[in-house]
Design a protein around this nucleic acid. Structure first.
Lengths: 189, 189
DNA sequence: GTAACATATGGGGTGACACCCCGTTTAGCA
DNA sequence: TGCTAAACGGGGTGTCACCCCATATGTTAC
């Protein structure tokens, strides 16, 4: 979770504040979701709100920073699955992992969905999309996935499910159940 | 869209204000979605914000009032389909209608999903659930739907898709496409 | 018609928020 | 050690949800 410096090397105090804000944001977002109070995050980090806004000009950018570690995990997992598993299983296992991450990290789904349609800060969305595309292509070659389906379809579906179940009592199980339904179809085999 | 009086007959001016607030809320929600400014709605309706809060103690209750007409349409449609159509087609046609309504009325999906898990104002959610249950039961009897699937599963899925596509360029088409994917399954037949 | 009363109103207060300006502080370097 | 650019944060602005209570208004009984 230690975030590397950004572009031109930051001054030491700036780097320290950046890290503190990020740590506070992780805690706040885990507790309150994607619409956690930015002022509260700044307060917890022990910096003025202006400093937070300077380091993270928009909520979206802050959320991307918070979730980037999780997203990297997901991308690495995609790589591993592409190497190890049978194409169809690999893709579906990975989709389950995406949903699991999104439900256990309040706000991740929102951040990813918004990232797909805003001009800034689409980094996380692009990373996940690229990681998933490889898995999907392999699955398509094995004819294990309905033709014409694209990776954004699957990811939108996964995030939609996570988003909708986010505030249910046991979100994880419910989301998994709905993902299964979507994968195998509402109609019986 | 003319809303009947609530419980004890309202005073004439109160009823008039109620209707004006509702009309302003419809316009604002259509424009800004479920998180439209309540103060702005009160301003447009030409009443003080306290009056709005007296008539609609929570945002959720206001949203339910705004959408109740749409929800009634959906419920009527369910009844018609249950009478006319083949069980499986009826259910799927209706699910498409639910998604279409939810995407063309910004905030409807949010309101319905929240209504399912909050103690107050679950009226709309209950109405839709009951209407859909009948269609689903008929479809189950015809063995046209995967066993074990419940109406809340289908509605959550439909709302999830609407919610996730709400801010995409052509939300309607995209939502329909994803619903199809979920209905027929990610895996090929 | 009018008096009396319950009902309804809305200006304005409170506290939280996002976001930003600009005078002050400080790290990094010669 | 002193200079300068970089970074900071107190405090301002405008917005919001929500509520209190003095005032106004419709309703009803006479």
């Amino acid at each position: 979770m230690t975030e590397g410096r950004k572009r031109g090397p930051l001054r030491a105090d700036a780097q320290r504040n950046y890290d503190q804000i990020l740590a506070a944001a992780e805690a706040a977002v885990a507790r309150d979701g994607a619409d956690a109070s930015l002022e509260e995050i700044a307060r917890q980090a022990g910096v003025g709100s202006a400093t937070l806004h300077r380091h993270f000009p928009s909520r979206q950018i802050l959320l991307e920073a918070v979730f980037s570690a999780k997203v990297e995990t997901l991308c690495r997992q995609a790589k591993d699955l592409a190497a190890d598993a049978e194409p169809s299983d690999a893709l579906i296992t990975w989709l389950r992992a995406v949903v699991a991450h999104a439900t256990s990290n309040r706000g991740l789904a929102t951040a990813l969905l918004r990232g797909a349609h805003e001009s800034f800060g689409t980094t996380c969305h692009a990373m996940i999309t690229d990681a998933g595309r490889e898995l999907l292509e392999r699955a398509h070659e094995a004819e294990a996935i309905r033709p014409g389906v694209e990776i954004v379809d699957l990811l939108t579906l996964a995030n939609a499910i996570a988003l909708a179940t986010e505030q249910e009592p046991n979100a994880g199980a419910r989301a998994e159940q709905l993902l299964d339904l979507a994968i195998y179809g509402v109609r019986p085999t």
